[in-house]
């Protein structure tokens, strides 16, 4: 088995404009996803909006600059993630397809095992 991280990318502005029903139904969809696939899920969380992010970037002379906001400027930012376990990419993609992301999509990245 191998581990993958599923990053959930969402359009934050669309989320802000969304009605309460969308929040409720998406939350429900996540609960459903976890209930169905619990055996394959190793972890995961929802994140605060990217306005709360702080980025540190190496300047190349041993120091870092600290900036407010997400690391790369984009309309779609990471809003949450799951760590999943799968036999191969096809199985990982089959799980990722079920991850709710109404205003964006997900990115699947294989984890490089540390040992």
């Amino acid at each position: 088995m191998a581990e993958y991280v599923v990053f959930i990318y969402d359009h934050e502005e669309d989320w802000e404009a969304a009605d309460p029903d969308t929040y409720v139904s998406t939350l429900q969809a996540h609960k459903q996803f976890i209930a169905v696939n619990g055996a394959s899920i190793r972890g995961g969380n929802r994140l605060h909006p990217s306005s709360t992010a702080t980025s540190l970037r190496a300047t190349g002379r041993g120091s870092v600059t600290v900036t407010d906001g997400a690391f790369t400027e984009a309309k779609e930012v990471i809003g949450g993630y799951y760590v999943i376990e799968a036999r191969d990419l096809d199985q990982a993609l089959a799980l990722a397809r079920q991850v709710p992301a109404p205003f964006g999509g997900v990115e699947v990245r294989p984890v490089l095992p540390s040992s």
């Binding site: 993958y4 799968a86 036999r87 191969d88 990419l89 096809d90 990982a92 699947v108 990245r109 294989p110």
Partner: peptide, 10 residues
Amino acid sequence: AAARVPYCEP
């Protein structure tokens, strides 16, 4: 290799 694209028929 890294993402384990499977070697099988769909």
